[in-house]
Design a protein around this nucleic acid. Structure first.
Lengths: 145, 145
DNA sequence: ATTGGTGCAAATCCTTTGCAATAGC
DNA sequence: GCTATTGCAAAGGATTTGCACCAAT
């Protein structure tokens, strides 16, 4: 498993936390990055069948959660059934189609600090703010008409 | 099943859509309203054991979704496992604790129209915007320290 | 050599589906 | 009476757990 540039941040973070560098972690990290955004655990698992056969579903889930903890990926709960993992970690919103489940990025500049402030005022310790617009994607809106 | 004031809006909406007025629908509607906010389908089902024994889980789910369709309740997907149903339908944000799963209302005045606009620009037909702040509630933040 | 990670299988949790029986309209 | 709703049982999908083995440090 020769280290690549993609691996470096992960390796450093793992070492810093005294956690182990395993092929599963490296490959899953690569997969999430090279794929289109918004992958499900299931999609990662399927892709692994090629790159690292024998990898188990629990390992995929554990590793994706680890990457999220490390800040390398972002978890998205768009209410479409499966949790999505996004290699794009900077703040952005998502649209989620109620009918087909498609989730897309939205580039909107909204100041969400009032929401975080409200949370803090309530004694809550905010870590992340998620904005999901639900409705109908272009295709499904057309199909309905 | 003597009609109450709580029932009226539901009855009117059902009639308008040619749908039937059933005891299950009336009671579930009442329950969601009289309880604290953010009830799960499971909680409603449990409460029904008292008010209308024998009601099935599928009926609870179908009815809550119907109420959401009618605009009488709001579905909330806070990423805490179960879908929540909220009798408070006007726009407001939520905080969701990563550790204990507690979901609370947040009263923050944020203009979310830029997000809706971005969605529309992308050809998406927005129906609702959901804002969820995830982090640690007061209790869990204290417990961790 | 330690012990954190992994794979396997099974369990759990939430929700939906298929179908016959029931009850609104 | 017609057909939407219901209940039952069972299936389904996503994720987690328990435990023995393996491999990174």
């Amino acid at each position: 498993m020769a280290p690549t540039d993609t691996d470096k941040p992960l390796i450093d973070l793992l070492r810093a936390r005294g956690q182990r560098v395993t092929p599963q972690r490296l490959v899953i990290n690569r997969l999430v990055r090279e794929r289109a955004r918004h992958v499900t655990a299931e999609e990662v698992h399927a892709a692994l069948a090629r790159d690292l056969p024998g990898t188990s579903a629990p390992t995929v889930y554990a590793t994706l959660d680890l990457l999220a903890d490390l800040g390398l990926v972002r978890r998205i709960d768009a209410g479409t059934g499966a949790t999505l993992y996004d290699a794009r970690t900077e703040p952005h919103s998502h649209s989620a189609c109620r009918r087909c489940g498609a989730v897309e990025d939205l580039d909107a500049t909204t100041d969400l600090s009032p929401v975080e402030d409200a949370a803090q005022r309530a004694g809550f310790q905010p870590q992340r703010v998620e904005v999901v617009v639900s409705g109908l994607c272009r295709r499904c809106a057309r199909a309905r008409a």
